[in-house]
Amino acid sequence: MKKWCLLLLLILSLGSSAIAKTEHSEEKWRGFDEAVIERIAEEKGKKPYGLFSLEGDLELFAFALLSGIAGLLVGYYWRKLISENRDASCFTERTLSSSKGS
């Protein structure tokens, strides 16, 4: 199951990346908020704005940095919770009773 999920994610990422590269234009692959929500708001006379603006590659840097940190945290806690405490006995009485307290 894990292998299938990882394979699916890889195919999706590579596939969407390839599509984005071949069909990319100024109007394509805009964010959903800009393409739909902000357009609807502007039609109704509202002018959306951000708290601050991240210009140029600063936005890419901020997203990459924070995503990287979040990814490392996910990996760290995954290892701490799952890999170092692996429990092969799924859905036994013991696991049921230990989770009842939560």
Binding site: L6, L9, L10, S13, L14, S16, S17, A20, K21, H24, W29, R30, G31, F32, D33, E34, I37, E38, A41, K46, K47, P48, Y49, G50, L51, E59, L60, F63, A64, S67, G68, A70, G71, L72, V74, G75
Partner: peptide, 22 residues
Amino acid sequence: FLGGLYLFVPRELYAMHISEGI
């Protein structure tokens, strides 16, 4: 892996939240 996955997405980086002013 998920962190690496991020490198493959295109550079238009927008999330879907309601922004200020709407």
